[in-house]
Structure formats: structure tokens, C-alpha cells
Design a protein around this nucleic acid. Sequence first.
DNA 1: GCGCATTCTGAAAGCGCTTTCTGATACCGT
DNA 2: ACGGTATCAGAAAGCGCTTTCAGAATGCGC
Lengths: 345, 345
Amino acid sequence: MSEREATAHVTLEVVARSAGVSQATASRVLNGTARVREDLRQRVVAAADLLGYIPNAHAQALASASSRLVGVICHDVADPYFAAIAGGVMRAAAEHDLLMMLASTFRDPAREIAYVSALRAQQARAILLISSGFQDRAWERAMNTELEPYLRGGGRVAVVSRHRTLRVDTVLPENRAGGAALARAMLGLGHRDFAVLSGPRALTTVSDRLGGFRDALAEAGVELSPDQVVEGAFTRDGGYDACAELLQRGLRATCVFAITDVMAIGALAALRDQGLRVPADVSLAGFDDIPIVRDLSPPLTTVALPLAEMGQAVMALALREPRGRRSRVTRFGGEVVLRASTGPP
Amino acid sequence: MSEREATAHVTLEVVARSAGVSQATASRVLNGTARVREDLRQRVVAAADLLGYIPNAHAQALASASSRLVGVICHDVADPYFAAIAGGVMRAAAEHDLLMMLASTFRDPAREIAYVSALRAQQARAILLISSGFQDRAWERAMNTELEPYLRGGGRVAVVSRHRTLRVDTVLPENRAGGAALARAMLGLGHRDFAVLSGPRALTTVSDRLGGFRDALAEAGVELSPDQVVEGAFTRDGGYDACAELLQRGLRATCVFAITDVMAIGALAALRDQGLRVPADVSLAGFDDIPIVRDLSPPLTTVALPLAEMGQAVMALALREPRGRRSRVTRFGGEVVLRASTGPP
DNA sequence: GCGCATTCTGAAAGCGCTTTCTGATACCGT
DNA sequence: ACGGTATCAGAAAGCGCTTTCAGAATGCGC
């Protein structure tokens, strides 16, 4: 049989030859990097079009030492919090004609480091860390070891949420202030007995929210009893389990603060399963204002974060020319949105 | 001032020189592609480690004509349906040590084509189309024009949801059968008057679900009145608006079928805003079983799709060696999950 | 101890592009 | 008509890696 191997791969050389010009000229035409005589230009464009030429991004990146890739690392794409932020990043990426590489760490710090390394290998133009900051010396050291040479090599890094040692541009959710504002709002409703469904201690997000909440209570002379603070995973089921545990210990609070909305969703289910009415028997509040919570019933009181906007902002931060050695911090959110899940005790 | 430009970029050449071996040997050591004398091996590893060597993925891809990138195209990462599938894909990608590039088309067919082209340029090892198939000649032609040379060049393509002309491996949600099963379940509850909140006609997902639903009703001698079918956008607000429109037209149905769960969430809000109780006044059902709907109140009756599993499956399909010219189809879901949002009329 | 098979290493040729650098051509003033 | 200056096209040198190919070193049998 005759070899009917498909047409060889269409490279710039093929296009140039077919148009009767040099590769240099073809490259200039296709990138618009220099003036080229009109008739040659048209021949190149026509040839490229006819042959269905698609440039090899790897060769381009290698030759020009730049790429159109932006890396995003989050804990879990499927989580509404990260999905919403990633949506904002995606929007910004589309506007800047960039491609987004998205990685989920599944909350494994080691995996996070590995992905940073992989993104470095891919010559990502920027790395966005949406995963919350860990408070762990070893992790911090490893992360800095990755990031420092990357930054020195011209890479851009921006993060969402506070990192203790990373000196990079930051989109900072008002975790502490938001926690405090929520506490004051609940105090204002008349609550004096609180419980908290907390998350993994290792995350700054958790300590900030909880710290702000606790401090604001303390200012009002209200103390948060340790046995009314339950730690759970940052998931719907984590919230459910933590709340169930709380109920088992004996709920003495009139208001429960779930440290994320996702956990609050689980908590709501747990409360309902125990026959407790929200907010008649107990008030429930969350944090993040992920899109779904306004559609729960009752709609959830929460601390609002403009997630999509934060995603766009972190991208913008990463793209902006770094000025000086100071890292920029953009703060977002922190406003309490009162909905029907909370009421007077 | 002395030039204290940071250390030059660490390339394989630098590592090799520092270890006193050739680039070839260094490459072989670092990739484990051939036996190398133990002492040399150790010197290379030590040098690479000390210098913090990170291979340039572009150079690797260019030289070896292969990459570790997988492209995923969906309509909107922030949408729970796509987020859940993307989560499954991400899991599979992590298992295979692949990097995932995720793009949102924001439901723009032209943008979808553009992303396929971009992924081709990136030499993506596989392209996964999670965006639902459009029923549009021009789009189909453009998509085939992109995909055909890609496949011929050894690229892998797999899609979720039915595509009319794309002959590629497919993960097929049981849209038609699911729609039919739901209809039968609702008939079983005693409903005879139905309304549908439908989505963009251009999507096969819509026509399949609606078709299955309508056919099953017809089999039972029940007709779906055209004025009780409202088309809306595939979003929460699209569902809300469509439902509001339906109510304005005059709701004659005892059971409303929202063609996606996301739309059902909006519909639930619209019904509640009009003072209608679900399911006492009207039953409401959705499709997809996105994670949140079981936590609504009332929990939503829906047609279940194992979204994360589908994501893993589509990745697996793309990775499996293509055998023959036949495209493989894996079907998923279609089971009705009865929850409290539906009841007897 | 010699020849041959067997490992293992290094030199060098690309992969497909961008970008300098050089040379050719066209255009200007006088 | 001629030298000088802009413009524009092409040759060629990489970018950082993998991989062939050939050669060096080692081991073996006899």
C-alpha cells in the first residue's frame, strides 16, 4: 500500500517556503513585529491560513523567553469559594489573552510546593496562590526556596489571603476585621453565648477570623468558652460533623459562627437533623458569602467577600509592574450581610 | 557599583559542567532514561540539587515532542456543574502527573474554538471539552477543522455531553433517559400538568433532556403545553427569570422541571418570592444533582449525574490508547433522586 | 594476552521558533 | 548623476533540552 501518512506537521518553515519568503519574514508577519512589504505579507498570511498553521508555543516560549501561561494554585476547584475566585482569575486571564493552568492541592502542603515547582518549569509568567497560607515553618521555608529564585528570574507572584513570611503582592480578605464585625453584629442582636465551628488551625484564614471574632467579643466582656469551639474540616461534611459534635457536647450558645459558608451549609443540615430551628432556636452565621448561601432557607447571614473581584484583583496584581521592593496589599470585603439565619436570641 | 546581578539561570548545561559530565549524561541521570555509572549519577543529582535546577518544560517539550499538559474547556469554572467535573478531571490529572489548563468560554462558541486552537499551540497532550455541544453548523465545521489535524497529529480528544458531528470519545450523561425517567417519576406522583424551565436551544443537553421528558409524557398521553415551556439562561438568575416569566404567564402546572439544578435554585427563589410553597403548591425538580441541592430546603428532587466521576472518566478516556477508529462512549447517571421538593399534586 | 561483545559517555544534531546582524534595495538631497 | 541614509529581507545564531551516533572503556571467552 502507498504510504498515506498525513501531511507533515506545518511549521513556520513550511509556511515560509510555501510563501516564498524566509522564516524571519514569516515570523515578522505573523507576529506583526516589523513592517513587511504588503505583497509578501499577504502571501504569508494566505499560506499560513491555507496550511492551517498553528505556531508551536513551546518553540516560541523557548526562543523569546516568555510565555502566556499563568498558574493558579488552590485547594480544591470544586469548592465554591475557590471556584468563584478562579472564575474571576479566568475572566482577567481572558482579557489579557493568557492561558490559565489550574491546580488543586487537595489541601496537601507538599503538593502545593510541587505545583509551584511545576509551574516554574512551565515558565509560567505568574503564579497565583489562592490556597490559604499555612502556618508551618517547614512549609514556609520550602515555599520561599521555590519562590525566591522564581521572583529573581522575573516571575510574578500574588497570593490571596495572608501569608506570614511570603513577601509578595497580596489580596487580603478582611478576615480579622470581618470576624470582629460579625461578632459585633451578633452582640447587637442581643447574643451573649456563642459557639464557633472552626477549621484547621494551620491556616491563617482560620486564626484570623477566629481571632477577630473572639477579640470583639472580649471587648464586650463576652468570653468564648473553649468547649464551644469545635474544629472541623473546611468542607460541608466538616461543618456537619463539627456541628454534630457541638450538639453532642451540649450546645449552650444562642449563636453559632461557622468559619466558612461551606461549613455553615453542613452546620445548617446538622441543626435541622437535630430538630433545631434556625434562627428561632439558634442563629447561624458564616463567612465568605459564596453565591449559594443567599438561596438557602433561611438565607445565611455571613461576612461578604467579593470573590470574583478578588480573583481579578490577584491577577491584576501579578501583572502590574513591580515597583520597588515593597509588596502591595489590596484589602477586600469584611462587611456583614444580615440575612434571615440570624435573629435575636 | 558592582553588578550584583543574580546568578545566571540554572540550565542543564550549568548542572552538567558543575558535575563534570556532559549534558547528555546529566539529562540521562535526571530523567532516568539510561544507566549511568553510580558516582557520576550521584554527582549530577548533587549538583542539580545544590543549584536548585528546574528543567525548562518548553525546551523539554520541544526536544522530546511531548508535553505534560492537558487542556480542559468548560463554559464557566464558577458554575458548580463544571466545577464538580473539573474537580474530577483535576484528581485524575494529579494521579497521572499531568498539568491541567482550564479555560472558561463564558458560553461563547467562538471563544471555545479559540481555546482549542490555543491548546493545540501549547501541544496539549489531550483536549477535554466539557462545554456542552452546540447545534450549529458553522461551529461544528470550525471545531472539526481544529480537531481533525490535532487528532491526526496524535492529540487526544474527549468530550462530555453529546456532540452531533464530533467523532471522539465521549462521556455521555444520560440526558434523554434521565429526562424521561424524571417525567415518569412525576407522573407516578400523580402530576398531569407540567411546566419546563428550559435552556438555550443551541445546546444538545437542552434538547436531549427536554426531548426525553416530553416523549415520556407523550407516552402517558400527557402533553406539554408550549406556553408552559420557558427558555432561560443556564444560570441561577436565568432560572429565576424564566420562572418569574412562567408565573406571569399564569402557572397552570403542578410540577415544574428546571432543566438544570442551577436554574432550579433560581426557580425556587422565584416561587418563594411569589409566596408559592414547594412542594405543597407546586413540585420542583432539577437535573444534575450538583452537591448543594441536597442542602436546599426543601432538598431538590433531581436526576443524578456523578459529576466528579465523569470528570475522571473523561480524562481516562483521553489517556487510553485509541483502539481502532471507533469512538468510545461511556454513559453515566440518569437516576432520579426523589427528595422533598416534589410530592403529589 | 588478544579479539570481540557489551556498557557507558560525550559530541553534535536537531526540535520550531525569535532576533540580531548583515546585505540589498529604494529613496533623498544637491 | 552620485553619495548617504532609511527600509526591508534573509542568513544564521541561538533558546535549553533530548537523542542519535560514534567512540572509549570495560568485561568476557578462549
